[in-house]
Design a protein around this nucleic acid. Structure first.
Lengths: 195, 195
DNA sequence: TTGATTAGTGTACGTTCGTCCACTAATATC
DNA sequence: GATATTAGTGGACGAACGTACACTAATCAA
Protein backbone atom coordinates (compact mmCIF):
# COMPACT_ATOMS: atom_id res chain seq x y z
CA UNK A 1 0.00 0.00 0.00
CA UNK A 2 2.75 2.41 -0.75
CA UNK A 3 3.17 4.09 -4.05
CA UNK A 4 6.14 6.42 -4.00
CA UNK A 5 4.62 8.68 -6.60
CA UNK A 6 2.14 11.39 -5.88
CA UNK A 7 -1.59 10.90 -6.01
CA UNK A 8 -2.78 12.59 -9.13
CA UNK A 9 -6.20 11.02 -9.06
CA UNK A 10 -6.74 12.08 -5.49
CA UNK A 11 -5.86 15.61 -6.44
CA UNK A 12 -8.26 15.63 -9.33
CA UNK A 13 -11.09 14.44 -7.12
CA UNK A 14 -10.40 17.41 -4.90
CA UNK A 15 -10.29 19.68 -7.92
CA UNK A 16 -13.64 18.41 -9.07
CA UNK A 17 -15.10 18.87 -5.64
CA UNK A 18 -13.75 22.38 -5.49
CA UNK A 19 -15.17 23.17 -8.90
CA UNK A 20 -18.56 22.14 -7.66
CA UNK A 21 -18.50 23.72 -4.25
CA UNK A 22 -15.75 26.30 -4.25
CA UNK A 23 -14.38 24.90 -1.05
CA UNK A 24 -11.73 22.44 0.03
CA UNK A 25 -13.64 19.74 1.89
CA UNK A 26 -12.94 18.80 5.50
CA UNK A 27 -10.82 15.76 6.29
CA UNK A 28 -13.96 13.82 7.02
CA UNK A 29 -15.43 14.82 3.68
CA UNK A 30 -12.19 14.02 1.87
CA UNK A 31 -12.19 10.57 3.41
CA UNK A 32 -15.74 9.98 2.27
CA UNK A 33 -14.88 11.27 -1.19
CA UNK A 34 -11.83 9.09 -1.63
CA UNK A 35 -12.98 6.06 0.29
CA UNK A 36 -10.58 6.47 3.18
CA UNK A 37 -11.68 4.87 6.39
CA UNK A 38 -9.61 7.11 8.60
CA UNK A 39 -9.60 10.88 8.64
CA UNK A 40 -5.90 10.67 9.19
CA UNK A 41 -5.38 9.42 5.67
CA UNK A 42 -6.99 12.60 4.44
CA UNK A 43 -4.81 14.66 6.75
CA UNK A 44 -1.71 13.05 5.32
CA UNK A 45 -2.90 13.50 1.77
CA UNK A 46 -3.48 17.18 2.46
CA UNK A 47 -0.02 17.45 3.99
CA UNK A 48 1.44 16.00 0.81
CA UNK A 49 -0.55 18.39 -1.34
CA UNK A 50 0.57 21.30 0.79
CA UNK A 51 4.13 20.15 0.45
CA UNK A 52 3.68 19.95 -3.32
CA UNK A 53 2.23 23.45 -3.41
CA UNK A 54 -1.36 22.62 -4.31
CA UNK A 55 -2.91 23.65 -1.04
CA UNK A 56 -2.31 26.42 1.41
CA UNK A 57 -3.59 27.70 4.72
CA UNK A 58 -5.08 31.01 5.70
CA UNK A 59 -3.63 32.81 8.74
CA UNK A 60 -6.20 30.97 10.82
CA UNK A 61 -5.11 27.63 9.41
CA UNK A 62 -8.03 26.95 7.15
CA UNK A 63 -7.32 25.13 3.91
CA UNK A 64 -7.39 26.94 0.60
CA UNK A 65 -6.22 26.14 -2.91
CA UNK A 66 -3.11 27.73 -4.35
CA UNK A 67 -2.70 28.95 -7.89
CA UNK A 68 -1.12 25.66 -8.78
CA UNK A 69 -4.24 23.88 -7.64
CA UNK A 70 -6.02 25.38 -10.62
CA UNK A 71 -3.36 24.82 -13.21
CA UNK A 72 -4.85 22.95 -16.04
CA UNK A 73 -2.67 20.46 -17.71
CA UNK A 74 -1.74 22.41 -20.82
CA UNK A 75 -2.06 18.92 -22.15
CA UNK A 76 -4.29 20.19 -24.86
CA UNK A 77 -1.27 19.49 -26.99
CA UNK A 78 -1.51 15.78 -26.34
CA UNK A 79 -5.10 15.66 -27.27
CA UNK A 80 -4.07 15.57 -30.85
CA UNK A 81 -2.75 12.09 -30.48
CA UNK A 82 -5.93 10.76 -28.99
CA UNK A 83 -9.51 11.66 -29.49
CA UNK A 84 -10.24 15.34 -29.73
CA UNK A 85 -13.46 14.59 -27.91
CA UNK A 86 -11.69 12.93 -25.06
CA UNK A 87 -11.45 15.68 -22.54
CA UNK A 88 -9.12 18.27 -23.98
CA UNK A 89 -9.51 19.83 -20.62
CA UNK A 90 -11.53 18.20 -17.92
CA UNK A 91 -13.19 21.54 -17.82
CA UNK A 92 -14.88 20.18 -14.76
CA UNK A 93 -13.18 22.90 -12.88
CA UNK A 94 -11.67 26.03 -14.06
CA UNK A 95 -10.57 28.90 -12.08
CA UNK A 96 -13.43 31.19 -11.92
CA UNK A 97 -12.69 34.08 -14.19
CA UNK A 98 -13.86 36.40 -11.49
CA UNK A 99 -11.17 35.31 -9.13
CA UNK A 100 -8.55 35.45 -11.84
CA UNK A 101 -9.36 38.93 -12.98
CA UNK A 102 -10.75 40.65 -9.92
CA UNK A 103 -8.35 41.09 -7.05
CA UNK A 104 -10.21 43.56 -4.91
CA UNK A 105 -13.90 43.19 -5.58
CA UNK A 106 -14.88 46.21 -3.51
CA UNK A 107 -12.75 48.47 -5.67
CA UNK A 108 -13.49 46.85 -8.98
CA UNK A 109 -16.04 47.87 -11.57
CA UNK A 110 -16.60 47.32 -15.25
CA UNK A 111 -16.65 49.95 -17.94
CA UNK A 112 -17.77 49.21 -21.48
CA UNK A 113 -15.43 50.31 -24.25
CA UNK A 114 -17.07 52.57 -26.80
CA UNK A 115 -15.50 53.44 -30.10
CA UNK A 116 -12.14 52.52 -31.52
CA UNK A 117 -9.90 55.05 -29.83
CA UNK A 118 -8.03 52.30 -27.97
CA UNK A 119 -7.91 49.88 -30.86
CA UNK A 120 -4.14 49.62 -31.02
CA UNK A 121 -4.07 48.47 -27.40
CA UNK A 122 -6.44 45.66 -28.27
CA UNK A 123 -9.45 47.33 -26.69
CA UNK A 124 -12.22 47.19 -29.22
CA UNK A 125 -15.69 48.67 -29.33
CA UNK A 126 -17.91 46.45 -27.21
CA UNK A 127 -15.13 45.12 -25.01
CA UNK A 128 -15.40 45.59 -21.29
CA UNK A 129 -12.62 47.06 -19.20
CA UNK A 130 -12.04 45.77 -15.69
CA UNK A 131 -11.17 48.78 -13.58
CA UNK A 132 -9.94 49.29 -10.08
CA UNK A 133 -10.59 52.45 -8.17
CA UNK A 134 -7.30 53.91 -7.09
CA UNK A 135 -5.71 57.22 -6.17
CA UNK A 136 -2.53 57.00 -8.13
CA UNK A 137 -1.77 55.90 -11.62
CA UNK A 138 1.50 55.91 -13.50
CA UNK A 139 2.28 57.05 -17.01
CA UNK A 140 1.73 54.08 -19.30
CA UNK A 141 -1.22 52.81 -17.28
CA UNK A 142 -4.54 52.59 -19.02
CA UNK A 143 -6.91 54.62 -16.89
CA UNK A 144 -10.58 55.51 -16.53
CA UNK A 145 -11.17 59.23 -16.39
CA UNK A 146 -13.96 61.75 -16.59
CA UNK A 147 -13.82 63.86 -19.68
CA UNK A 148 -16.73 66.11 -20.48
CA UNK A 149 -19.01 64.40 -18.04
CA UNK A 150 -18.42 61.01 -19.56
CA UNK A 151 -16.27 58.07 -18.65
CA UNK A 152 -13.42 57.53 -21.02
CA UNK A 153 -10.59 55.05 -21.18
CA UNK A 154 -7.18 56.16 -22.35
CA UNK A 155 -3.52 55.64 -21.70
CA UNK A 156 -2.07 57.99 -19.11
CA UNK A 157 0.98 59.84 -20.37
CA UNK A 158 3.21 62.65 -19.19
CA UNK A 159 3.77 65.62 -21.44
CA UNK A 160 6.39 67.91 -19.98
CA UNK A 161 5.04 68.54 -16.48
CA UNK A 162 1.55 67.59 -17.33
CA UNK A 163 -0.50 64.43 -17.35
CA UNK A 164 -2.49 63.82 -20.50
CA UNK A 165 -4.71 61.10 -21.93
CA UNK A 166 -3.38 59.36 -24.98
CA UNK A 167 -5.67 57.35 -27.27
CA UNK A 168 -4.19 54.21 -28.79
CA UNK A 169 -5.25 55.08 -32.30
CA UNK A 170 -3.47 57.61 -34.48
CA UNK A 171 -6.78 58.95 -35.75
CA UNK A 172 -7.55 60.47 -32.35
CA UNK A 173 -5.99 63.47 -30.63
CA UNK A 174 -4.34 63.53 -27.23
CA UNK A 175 -6.71 64.82 -24.55
CA UNK A 176 -5.56 67.46 -22.10
CA UNK A 177 -8.43 67.88 -19.67
CA UNK A 178 -7.83 70.27 -16.82
CA UNK A 179 -8.32 69.27 -14.14
CA UNK A 180 -7.71 65.63 -14.97
CA UNK A 181 -10.08 63.45 -13.02
CA UNK A 182 -8.95 59.86 -12.84
CA UNK A 183 -11.31 57.29 -11.44
CA UNK A 184 -9.17 54.21 -11.61
CA UNK A 185 -6.80 52.07 -13.59
CA UNK A 186 -7.70 49.35 -16.02
CA UNK A 187 -6.45 46.03 -14.71
CA UNK A 188 -7.86 43.83 -17.42
CA UNK A 189 -10.41 43.47 -20.13
CA UNK A 190 -12.63 40.90 -21.75
CA UNK A 191 -14.96 40.46 -24.65
CA UNK A 192 -17.59 38.03 -25.74
CA UNK A 193 -18.05 37.18 -29.38
CA UNK A 194 -21.58 36.01 -28.88
CA UNK A 195 -24.36 38.48 -29.08
CA UNK B 1 -28.84 49.98 15.48
CA UNK B 2 -31.25 48.89 12.81
CA UNK B 3 -30.80 49.79 9.23
CA UNK B 4 -33.50 48.24 7.11
CA UNK B 5 -31.30 48.16 4.02
CA UNK B 6 -28.81 45.47 3.32
CA UNK B 7 -25.21 45.67 4.34
CA UNK B 8 -23.27 46.36 1.21
CA UNK B 9 -20.09 47.26 3.02
CA UNK B 10 -20.14 44.06 5.03
CA UNK B 11 -20.61 42.08 1.88
CA UNK B 12 -17.73 43.77 0.15
CA UNK B 13 -15.41 43.04 3.04
CA UNK B 14 -16.29 39.40 2.64
CA UNK B 15 -15.79 39.62 -1.10
CA UNK B 16 -12.35 41.09 -0.62
CA UNK B 17 -11.48 38.44 1.92
CA UNK B 18 -12.62 35.76 -0.46
CA UNK B 19 -10.62 37.22 -3.31
CA UNK B 20 -7.54 37.03 -1.14
CA UNK B 21 -8.06 33.66 0.46
CA UNK B 22 -10.58 31.85 -1.68
CA UNK B 23 -12.60 30.93 1.37
CA UNK B 24 -15.54 32.30 3.28
CA UNK B 25 -14.18 33.02 6.75
CA UNK B 26 -15.57 31.42 9.90
CA UNK B 27 -18.01 33.34 12.07
CA UNK B 28 -15.20 34.15 14.44
CA UNK B 29 -13.08 35.47 11.59
CA UNK B 30 -15.99 37.46 10.17
CA UNK B 31 -16.52 39.06 13.56
CA UNK B 32 -12.87 40.02 13.74
CA UNK B 33 -12.97 41.34 10.19
CA UNK B 34 -16.05 43.49 10.73
CA UNK B 35 -15.50 44.45 14.33
CA UNK B 36 -18.36 42.43 15.74
CA UNK B 37 -18.01 41.49 19.36
CA UNK B 38 -20.28 38.50 19.17
CA UNK B 39 -20.00 35.59 16.77
CA UNK B 40 -23.73 35.63 16.60
CA UNK B 41 -23.71 38.91 14.73
CA UNK B 42 -21.67 37.18 12.05
CA UNK B 43 -24.08 34.28 12.00
CA UNK B 44 -26.97 36.63 11.43
CA UNK B 45 -25.13 38.52 8.73
CA UNK B 46 -24.43 35.25 6.97
CA UNK B 47 -28.08 34.29 7.27
CA UNK B 48 -29.03 37.56 5.62
CA UNK B 49 -26.53 37.02 2.84
CA UNK B 50 -27.82 33.51 2.31
CA UNK B 51 -31.33 34.87 2.14
CA UNK B 52 -30.21 37.43 -0.40
CA UNK B 53 -28.54 34.77 -2.50
CA UNK B 54 -24.91 35.72 -1.97
CA UNK B 55 -23.93 32.71 0.07
CA UNK B 56 -24.79 29.06 0.01
CA UNK B 57 -24.05 25.85 1.87
CA UNK B 58 -22.54 22.58 0.74
CA UNK B 59 -24.39 19.35 1.56
CA UNK B 60 -22.36 19.22 4.76
CA UNK B 61 -23.38 22.74 5.67
CA UNK B 62 -20.16 24.54 4.95
CA UNK B 63 -20.39 28.06 3.58
CA UNK B 64 -19.60 28.85 -0.03
CA UNK B 65 -20.19 31.80 -2.33
CA UNK B 66 -22.86 31.77 -5.01
CA UNK B 67 -22.56 33.23 -8.47
CA UNK B 68 -24.11 36.43 -7.28
CA UNK B 69 -21.37 36.76 -4.73
CA UNK B 70 -18.99 37.52 -7.60
CA UNK B 71 -21.07 40.04 -9.41
CA UNK B 72 -19.53 43.44 -10.01
CA UNK B 73 -21.22 46.66 -11.04
CA UNK B 74 -21.14 47.39 -14.71
CA UNK B 75 -20.08 50.93 -15.29
CA UNK B 76 -20.84 53.53 -12.73
CA UNK B 77 -21.88 56.37 -14.87
CA UNK B 78 -23.89 57.63 -11.92
CA UNK B 79 -20.94 57.93 -9.69
CA UNK B 80 -20.00 61.24 -11.14
CA UNK B 81 -22.96 62.94 -9.60
CA UNK B 82 -22.37 61.72 -6.12
CA UNK B 83 -19.34 60.42 -4.35
CA UNK B 84 -17.30 58.00 -6.38
CA UNK B 85 -17.12 55.97 -3.19
CA UNK B 86 -20.85 55.82 -2.74
CA UNK B 87 -22.31 52.69 -4.19
CA UNK B 88 -24.36 53.49 -7.25
CA UNK B 89 -27.80 52.05 -7.55
CA UNK B 90 -26.84 48.51 -6.88
CA UNK B 91 -29.93 46.85 -8.19
CA UNK B 92 -29.45 46.52 -11.91
CA UNK B 93 -26.37 45.85 -13.96
CA UNK B 94 -24.47 43.52 -11.75
CA UNK B 95 -22.56 40.96 -13.71
CA UNK B 96 -20.23 38.10 -13.06
CA UNK B 97 -17.45 37.31 -15.48
CA UNK B 98 -18.08 33.61 -15.41
CA UNK B 99 -21.71 33.81 -16.24
CA UNK B 100 -21.01 36.30 -18.99
CA UNK B 101 -18.18 34.47 -20.63
CA UNK B 102 -18.76 30.79 -20.04
CA UNK B 103 -22.05 29.44 -21.24
CA UNK B 104 -21.33 25.74 -21.29
CA UNK B 105 -18.64 24.97 -18.75
CA UNK B 106 -18.31 21.35 -19.81
CA UNK B 107 -17.46 22.36 -23.36
CA UNK B 108 -15.34 25.36 -22.55
CA UNK B 109 -11.57 25.54 -22.39
CA UNK B 110 -8.93 28.22 -22.47
CA UNK B 111 -6.18 28.66 -24.99
CA UNK B 112 -3.41 31.20 -24.51
CA UNK B 113 -2.76 33.52 -27.44
CA UNK B 114 0.82 33.42 -28.65
CA UNK B 115 2.25 35.89 -31.08
CA UNK B 116 0.62 38.74 -32.91
CA UNK B 117 -1.02 36.94 -35.80
CA UNK B 118 -4.48 37.90 -34.54
CA UNK B 119 -3.56 41.41 -33.53
CA UNK B 120 -6.04 43.15 -35.81
CA UNK B 121 -8.87 41.23 -34.16
CA UNK B 122 -7.77 42.57 -30.80
CA UNK B 123 -6.21 39.29 -29.68
CA UNK B 124 -2.78 40.14 -28.40
CA UNK B 125 0.12 38.03 -27.25
CA UNK B 126 -0.63 36.93 -23.70
CA UNK B 127 -4.38 37.16 -23.99
CA UNK B 128 -6.47 34.11 -23.25
CA UNK B 129 -9.09 32.84 -25.65
CA UNK B 130 -12.25 31.28 -24.27
CA UNK B 131 -13.13 28.41 -26.55
CA UNK B 132 -16.05 26.12 -26.89
CA UNK B 133 -15.75 22.66 -28.32
CA UNK B 134 -18.10 22.34 -31.23
CA UNK B 135 -18.62 20.38 -34.41
CA UNK B 136 -19.47 23.15 -36.76
CA UNK B 137 -18.01 26.57 -37.30
CA UNK B 138 -18.94 29.18 -39.86
CA UNK B 139 -16.75 31.36 -42.02
CA UNK B 140 -15.97 34.48 -40.04
CA UNK B 141 -15.79 32.61 -36.74
CA UNK B 142 -12.54 32.67 -34.88
CA UNK B 143 -11.62 29.06 -34.34
CA UNK B 144 -9.09 26.86 -32.58
CA UNK B 145 -7.45 24.38 -34.88
CA UNK B 146 -4.57 21.99 -35.05
CA UNK B 147 -1.87 23.05 -37.44
CA UNK B 148 1.38 21.15 -37.48
CA UNK B 149 0.68 19.50 -34.16
CA UNK B 150 0.09 22.78 -32.41
CA UNK B 151 -2.98 24.65 -31.39
CA UNK B 152 -3.55 27.80 -33.32
CA UNK B 153 -6.22 30.44 -33.33
CA UNK B 154 -7.32 31.99 -36.59
CA UNK B 155 -10.37 33.24 -38.40
CA UNK B 156 -12.15 30.61 -40.43
CA UNK B 157 -12.68 31.66 -44.02
CA UNK B 158 -13.93 30.05 -47.20
CA UNK B 159 -11.79 30.19 -50.30
CA UNK B 160 -13.67 28.85 -53.27
CA UNK B 161 -14.85 25.42 -52.05
CA UNK B 162 -12.25 25.22 -49.34
CA UNK B 163 -12.02 26.25 -45.71
CA UNK B 164 -8.87 28.09 -44.75
CA UNK B 165 -7.44 29.81 -41.68
CA UNK B 166 -6.94 33.52 -41.99
CA UNK B 167 -4.67 35.43 -39.59
CA UNK B 168 -5.79 38.90 -38.60
CA UNK B 169 -2.48 40.50 -39.41
CA UNK B 170 -1.32 41.29 -42.93
CA UNK B 171 2.19 40.15 -42.09
CA UNK B 172 1.02 36.54 -41.89
CA UNK B 173 -0.04 34.20 -44.67
CA UNK B 174 -3.33 32.36 -44.95
CA UNK B 175 -3.04 28.76 -43.77
CA UNK B 176 -4.46 25.94 -45.85
CA UNK B 177 -4.02 22.82 -43.75
CA UNK B 178 -5.43 19.65 -45.22
CA UNK B 179 -7.23 18.11 -43.54
CA UNK B 180 -8.40 21.05 -41.47
CA UNK B 181 -8.89 19.96 -37.90
CA UNK B 182 -11.04 22.35 -35.90
CA UNK B 183 -11.31 21.89 -32.16
CA UNK B 184 -13.72 24.63 -31.33
CA UNK B 185 -14.77 28.21 -31.76
CA UNK B 186 -13.56 31.17 -29.78
CA UNK B 187 -16.46 32.62 -27.85
CA UNK B 188 -14.58 35.27 -25.98
CA UNK B 189 -11.26 36.44 -24.67
CA UNK B 190 -9.72 38.22 -21.74
CA UNK B 191 -6.46 39.69 -20.58
CA UNK B 192 -4.94 40.94 -17.37
CA UNK B 193 -2.63 43.92 -17.31
CA UNK B 194 -1.12 43.06 -13.97
CA UNK B 195 2.04 41.26 -13.21
C1' DT C 1 -46.52 56.47 21.91
C1' DT C 2 -46.56 52.21 21.12
C1' DG C 3 -45.15 48.16 18.92
C1' DA C 4 -42.78 45.59 15.30
C1' DT C 5 -38.56 44.92 13.03
C1' DT C 6 -33.70 44.87 12.44
C1' DA C 7 -28.80 44.71 14.21
C1' DG C 8 -25.85 43.49 17.52
C1' DT C 9 -24.15 41.71 22.56
C1' DG C 10 -23.05 38.02 25.78
C1' DT C 11 -22.98 33.46 27.28
C1' DA C 12 -23.53 28.67 27.03
C1' DC C 13 -23.45 24.25 24.76
C1' DG C 14 -23.04 20.29 21.65
C1' DT C 15 -20.86 18.95 17.44
C1' DT C 16 -17.42 18.81 14.14
C1' DC C 17 -12.89 19.43 13.03
C1' DG C 18 -8.04 18.78 12.99
C1' DT C 19 -4.33 16.59 15.40
C1' DC C 20 -1.85 13.01 17.75
C1' DC C 21 -0.11 8.35 18.59
C1' DA C 22 0.27 3.47 18.07
C1' DC C 23 -0.25 0.06 14.69
C1' DT C 24 -0.50 -2.48 9.91
C1' DA C 25 0.65 -3.35 5.12
C1' DA C 26 3.09 -2.85 0.80
C1' DT C 27 6.94 -1.32 -1.83
C1' DA C 28 11.73 -0.05 -2.81
C1' DT C 29 16.68 -0.22 -1.34
C1' DC C 30 20.76 -2.17 0.06
C1' DG D 1 16.35 -11.02 3.59
C1' DA D 2 16.51 -7.02 6.61
C1' DT D 3 15.02 -2.33 6.81
C1' DA D 4 13.56 2.20 5.67
C1' DT D 5 9.85 4.56 3.57
C1' DT D 6 5.23 5.42 2.15
C1' DA D 7 0.05 4.85 2.60
C1' DG D 8 -3.48 3.86 5.24
C1' DT D 9 -6.33 2.18 9.87
C1' DG D 10 -8.33 3.20 14.32
C1' DG D 11 -9.31 5.51 18.34
C1' DA D 12 -8.78 9.40 21.53
C1' DC D 13 -8.77 14.22 22.67
C1' DG D 14 -8.73 19.37 22.84
C1' DA D 15 -9.87 23.29 20.27
C1' DA D 16 -12.55 25.63 17.08
C1' DC D 17 -16.86 26.06 15.05
C1' DG D 18 -21.72 26.77 14.52
C1' DT D 19 -26.03 27.19 17.05
C1' DA D 20 -29.26 28.67 20.43
C1' DC D 21 -31.38 31.81 23.63
C1' DA D 22 -32.15 35.82 26.35
C1' DC D 23 -31.30 40.58 26.20
C1' DT D 24 -30.30 45.58 24.41
C1' DA D 25 -30.54 49.35 21.15
C1' DA D 26 -32.04 51.85 17.16
C1' DT D 27 -35.20 52.67 13.49
C1' DC D 28 -39.78 52.86 11.21
C1' DA D 29 -44.82 52.43 10.76
C1' DA D 30 -49.23 52.75 12.80
Amino acid sequence: MARPNHDPDHLSVLQDYYAQHRLIPSYAAISALLGFKAKNAAAMLVARLEEAGYLQRTPDKRLTPTTRFFERPRSLAFVRAGMPEAAPDSSADMVSLDSMLVRTPSKTFFVPIRGDSMMDAGLLDGDTAICERTQHANPGDIVVAFVGNELTIKTLAKERERYVLKPENKAYPVLRPDPLEILGVVTGSFRSYRR
